[in-house]
Amino acid sequence: MLDVVQDLLVLMISSSLVSNVVLSQFLGLCPFLGVSKKVNTAAGMGGAVIFVITLASGVTAVIYKFILIPLDITYLQTIVFILVIAALVQFVEMFLKKYVPSLYQALGVYLPLITTNCAVLGVALTNVQKEYGIGFSIVSGFSTAAGFLIAIVILAGIREKIEYNDIPESFKGMPIVLITAGLMAIAFCGFSGLL
């Protein structure tokens, strides 16, 4: 029992901080750069991604274990996972449109684009590759997405401050953001000493 708890803790720390999905695996860069102008919106995006990834990891793990393995068609994993993810994103979109219209407006085109957020598919495929069970898959999905949330909120906080800085002309806009992201990635390397 203690072993499982320990494994789960290690999994959570490693997938959220040490091998952060954005900063060390370079997945999900599109929303990371696109929706990180304001902390509020970034947090909303992070929340939506947590929801999608956690659910997607659970559902894909179930499908993998009970449908793809018994029928011996694991080569279909990518296409089936994409189906599931696309459906879940549609679901989140409807939910937000109904209950949190302000967030729906703020996220704009980036909300349906969660579908193509490679972090979501990446997590689902990594879970399968590492042969996690359903429970571990969900935990792994949740903590990976939490790592995404942490990274995007920190970047948004920095970008809000950068707004007021006197940046050389050639670095204005995306270049300075990419440099910032690079520095953050270096900083996150420090977490590798955690495990």
Binding site: L76, A87, Q90, M94
Partner: peptide, 17 residues
Amino acid sequence: VVGIVGLLLGIFLGIAS
């Protein structure tokens, strides 16, 4: 398999909408 998964998800989304 792909067809059935798609169909189920479609029904789920239809109900959700």
